[in-house]
Simulated scan of single mutants.
Amino acid sequence: MKNIEMMERHKGTKNNLESIMLNNNWTSYYVSKKSGINKKTISKIVKDKFTTISSDTLLSITYNMNINLQNLIEPCDSGDIKMVHLRNTDIPKFDSKLDNIFYKYTKIHFKVYPYNDGHAVNLYSKYIHKIRFDGNFRIERDTNDSKLCLRIIDLGFIIINKYKKFNINKYLENIIVGIEKYALYLGAEKIEYALGPFFRKHKDINGYFVSYSNSNYFSIKILLKNRFNILNTNLKNKNVFDYEDVLRKIEPGDTPWLIKIL
C-alpha cells in the first residue's frame, strides 16, 4: 500500500479547569488543598489545556471540587496542524459501536473521544458509580507482520472504597470480553495489552477511592484467564500462568506486552 502524505489537524480532549476556577474565584492553592492534588500538578493542568491527566487526578478533582466530569473534560480541536504519513488507508476507525458493545457487557456507558483520524481513542466511563474506567486504544497494522492489531495502551480503573463487596473480577472480565468483541468487529487479527513500567496501586489522600494502573493484579489475572501471553522482542509468545510468572518473564530487552491472537 502506498504511503500518503497529508496535513492533519490534531484532535483530542481539553480540560476546562482554568475557566471553572475563574468562575468560582478559586486559586491553585485552594484547589490543591481541597482536592489533595499537588499544587504543581494543578498549575500544569491550568496552563496546558491539552496535558494528559491521570484518572485518579481527574476523580480527585471532580469529586472533591464537586465538578461534573463532562464539564471538566471535553472533545476539542487543538488547532495544531502537522504533517502525517498514512501508510495504510484501509485501517478501520473507532466508532460509537465501542460504547454499545461495552454497555452490553458491563452496563456502563462510556464517553468515546476518537483522534488521529479515528485510529486512536480516549474513553472514560460516563458516570461514576462503584467503579470508573478510562483507557486509550489504537488500531494499526503491526510493522513486523502487517496484521491489523488493536492495542490497549492504557486501561486504568478506580474503585470507590465504600463498595467493599464489588466484584472487580467480573467487571474486568466483561471489559476484556467487550474489547475482544469490538476488535473482531473492526476486523483485528490480534490484541496487544501494554504492561506499564511499574505495578501501581494508589489511594487518594481522603481514602475515598483506590486507583489501579495497567499492570495490576486484577487485570493481568483476567488477561491470563482469557489466554493472553507475554510477547517479547523476537515476537515469540511465552506462556505465563499467574501474576508472579508475568513478573519473572519480563526480561531486560523484552517488549512489555500481553498478546492474544484472534
Rank of each mutant, 00 (worst) to 15 (best):
M1D: 14
N3G: 15
E5F: 07
M6H: 12
M6A: 14
E8C: 08
H10M: 12
T13Y: 09
I20M: 02
N24R: 12
N25Y: 03
Y29E: 14
V31M: 02
V31A: 08
S32L: 00
S32E: 03
S43Y: 01
V46L: 00
F50R: 01
T51P: 02
I53S: 01
T57A: 07
L59T: 09
L59C: 09
N68I: 07
L69C: 08
N71W: 03
L72K: 01
D80W: 10
I91W: 03
L98I: 02
I101R: 00
F102R: 05
Y103F: 11
I108G: 04
F110M: 09
V112R: 01
Y115C: 12
Y115Q: 12
D117L: 14
N122Q: 10
S125H: 02
S125W: 03
K126F: 08
H129A: 14
F133H: 06
D134A: 15
G135S: 06
G135N: 07
K147F: 12
D154I: 08
F157V: 05
Y163M: 03
Y163L: 03
N169D: 13
V177M: 02
L184R: 09
G187P: 03
E189C: 05
H202P: 04
H202D: 15
K203F: 11
I205T: 11
G207I: 01
S211Q: 08
N214L: 05
S219F: 07
S219Q: 08
K221P: 10
I222Q: 11
L224W: 08
L235S: 14
N237E: 14
N239T: 14
V240R: 07
Y243N: 01
E244M: 14
L247M: 13
K249N: 15
I250V: 10
L258Y: 00
